[in-house]
Design a protein around this nucleic acid. Sequence first.
DNA 1: TCAAGTATACTTGTATACAAGTATTATAAC
DNA 2: GTTATAATACTTGTATACAAGTATACTTGA
Lengths: 243, 243
Amino acid sequence: MTESKDFLYPSKWLSKASAGDRVTCELRMRIISGLIESGAIISENKLASDFAVSRSPVREALKVLASENIIRLERMGAVVIGLTEKEIEEIYDVRLLIETFVFERLVRMDVTELVKELSKILEMMKVAIKYQDADEFSYQDLLFHETIIRSINHSYMLMIWSNLRPVMESLILLSMRARFQEKYEDFDRIIKNHELYIEAIQTKERTLMVQSLHQNFDDVQGKVDDLWMSQQMLSKGVVQEND
Amino acid sequence: MTESKDFLYPSKWLSKASAGDRVTCELRMRIISGLIESGAIISENKLASDFAVSRSPVREALKVLASENIIRLERMGAVVIGLTEKEIEEIYDVRLLIETFVFERLVRMDVTELVKELSKILEMMKVAIKYQDADEFSYQDLLFHETIIRSINHSYMLMIWSNLRPVMESLILLSMRARFQEKYEDFDRIIKNHELYIEAIQTKERTLMVQSLHQNFDDVQGKVDDLWMSQQMLSKGVVQEND
DNA sequence: TCAAGTATACTTGTATACAAGTATTATAAC
DNA sequence: GTTATAATACTTGTATACAAGTATACTTGA
């Protein structure tokens, strides 16, 4: 049972985090990666001893994960829901909805500052690719979209994003890690697509924006099926096999 | 300091609720009503002694309210954000976004069951008006919209609604209570509008739906300004004046 | 009067204790 | 063997205790 990696969530993202946050993030990764299978029943006490913390931070984590819809709190124990393909599609429904709304606002705004900011993030993404840093790439990718959403100053649109973000984060982390190993060439397309996105914002062309949004969707979604399976196996392999 | 009403949130909705839920709901009402002013700093300890509970349920409440964007957790104490007019408009942006999305799905579904369910709820609303039960009316009103959203079986659309719901609940409760006292005639329009909504779903006419959605928006939004002021004064009056 | 440092009273996050309630299992009666 | 009841081992929700950290106030020195 000597696992090569004890934690799926990037530890350096948790440098200043509380135990509650640690448990939340790690548990989320384990559920979304399929390491903890959907349907499984997890209890506060069990998790507390697994993570070697008290029930307080675990309780906190379960509340958060329940609000993210990846577990369901019941009278006794929490039932893992996880993400089916349907739910991943649904997440992208929401992303499409948000970002389309945001774009409509952007059309009526000065976007020079935003475009500059996005270009910077894109550069960062390129560097992350160059050094094969999947986690850093994921971080910048998420930041890219968050920056766009933040720019319109709409607290409730941002709220939706905040609720969605953690799950997206896990998905992207897992997806990108797998790609760095298997489908390195994908990143060209992803970068191109982000460039397209910036251009759409700059020129304020709706068609371009919808195009890039859908491509981004296909990018992640289209690949999710295979990645999904491989990830599922990969993560299950971790607990069964030794290295 | 003898307040005629100690709690703003309907106590019968909390019959089986935990102390944490009680604090959450009541605190939310106090913030949204303006009883606790935006900018105020509230601390766990203070609230715990105010509500005569321990810090655990209070902590829970603050986490929830922070995720709803009506308070902001800081290093020391939580800062009340509350709802400005801008934020109320933003909430309706989101509602519009969700319900438009839902409608697009409904167009491709069998809606007979849904229409029946909505008609039932509408009847309930009428009864609530007849007996001047603002809280019951609010409950049914929320249920009306939740039923529509639930019907398309989209877990992430439902998630957004769940995040929005509590704030909407508080707003509607306050708004309806005020109207029963001041603008009783409003309810005719509200009922008519809900009938229009049902009709739009039944006939699957987009124009009708958009129309009723915007009217519903105007209904609540248009009135919010005055209600807001009166509510603000009303709730401030509660602490200062005796009856 | 002002600056710097210390003391104090707060804060959060976590652990632990306990009460009340719920499933499960074992026991007893038929 | 089956059913009813009782005991046990879990569960959640809340209270309390404690450690670590942060702001405020107070003292001390100039």
